[in-house]
Design a protein around this nucleic acid. Structure first.
Lengths: 250, 250
DNA sequence: TCGAGTCTTACTCAGTCTGAGAACAACGAG
DNA sequence: CTCGTTGTTCTCAGACTGAGTAAGACTCGA
């Protein structure tokens, strides 16, 4: 048996059937109290003119870096400008059915991104345009992107329960009511204000008080709310469970 | 712009840097009350002689099918013989750091498999041998497989809480005590028998009674336990929470 | 065959958590 | 100023949880 050096030198990477690896990003944000997803309109074949998730081929970089790069390209935001640094990015899962892309065998690693309200994206890359769309108006998407979006939403809704993810949707300092609005937007249901308040403050490490109060109350009155920052918890314990998904869900 | 047919005909799949896609399987089972993982000893370079997770290159098949095939090849089990059909298989996540494989850029889609006690594997494929190893004795593994295994264990421990996954580790009919042994093995701690019993029976759809009792009691006495089958729930509600991971985990 | 020890199952009880509702004060809009 | 809205705090009954106890049923070894 040859030694490892010889083996690597003689190794032929072309010996396998060609496969491409892409990343696709399910980027979520909240605008006007509704959950939105970032979509692009495809400029080229296949699926020209269709809406799709932002994404592209992986280059010489980690998968995480590829996802962040694609997000930056499609939104026109630059890393280092501060906005993108506050985006929470995590891997969702991979999709690799033969035939999901008519060009060739493509395995796509999907990512989930959460951001505070971002500006309207500038067109860039090979996308004819990018825009935020309310998740319930996404409609048909190219490839299997509708399924990917559905998986992403499931994951997002579940993670709100046991992680402090909601803080990724709000600014640096926020009120409990803003946090509650995030939960309401993602879960699609109103939450009992009093109980939510009690719960959030009772979970260690979820939020910490800044000692300040907002300069102004809400548009429709009420006292000036207190401001909080995200705490140091990675897991919420105990969790904030969703209001009874009636037991039929199973 | 050419139409889609022309575009596809002229598309050159070789235009991108070569990437290979593999699947790696974290297969878990319980033997003698301890959680075991299936490992192979690598026969060829790179990492010849090292232990690794079973896995290999994806062929013209879905990712799920590739994972099942690799599992079958490494264990010597054939699909259709019944044993493999009862294996729970789910995607874990993908690993694609440049340099994780010295041969070329390799993106690996990791899978998690749960099975009732399987027979000792027969060697097969390019592995010099395959064997079940207690998870806490896995030691160093080839590539980044140690990290993959750790992620798989995390996922398994978490999923036990809110899904009926534990039933995938036991036979078709089982006792509550066998189910409790699964939780104890995966979580690494004993559980209060009475409370566990109450909890399992109170979660709708987790288990359903067969009406029968086991022919024999445990080795060290006790009454003949009743037998149960897995219910139709996909999610446990309410969940079986792990005994207080003391709040420092965050 | 008998006793010791083990195990399943059921029950109890105090502490905690939850959902629902009410109370109150602070605030904006008209 | 008045009214409706909102942030925050309480209260209360029901559900759930961990810990312990108890009654049998059974195996094993003496």
């Amino acid at each position: 048996m040859s030694d490892e050096r010889d083996f690597l030198d003689s190794y032929d990477p072309g010996a396998f059937a060609p496969v491409a690896v892409t990343v696709d990003v399910v980027a979520l944000t909240i605008r006007d109290g509704r959950l939105h997803v970032l979509l692009v309109e495809r400029g080229g074949h296949p699926f020209a003119g269709w809406r799709a998730l932002p994404g592209g081929f992986v280059q010489e970089e980690t998968l995480d870096a590829a996802a962040l790069r694609e997000l930056a390209e499609e939104t026109g935001l630059r890393p280092g400008e501060g906005v993108l640094d506050r985006v929470h990015l995590e891997q969702l899962r991979s999709y690799g059915d033969p035939g999901r892309d008519p060009r060739m065998r493509v395995v796509s690693v999907a990512y989930l991104a959460f951001a505070p309200s971002l500006p309207d994206p500038r067109a860039g890359g090979d996308a004819a345009g990018a825009f935020w769309v309310p998740v319930d108006e996404a409609g048909e998407l190219a490839f299997d992107h509708a399924a990917i979006l559905a998986d992403g939403l499931d994951r997002a809704r579940a993670k709100l329960e046991y992680t402090p993810l909601a803080t990724a949707f709000v600014g640096d300092e926020f009120t409990i009511a803003e946090l509650r609005a995030v939960y309401a937007a993602v879960w699609g249901e109103e939450l009992h204000a009093g109980n939510f308040h009690r719960k959030v403050l009772s979970v260690p490490g979820f939020v910490e008080s800044t000692g300040e109060t907002a300069g102004r109350a809400g548009e429709r009155g009420g006292p000036k709310p207190r401001l909080y920052r995200a705490g140091d918890a990675h897991l919420l314990h105990p969790a904030l469970l969703r209001p009874t998904r009636e037991d039929g869900v199973r």
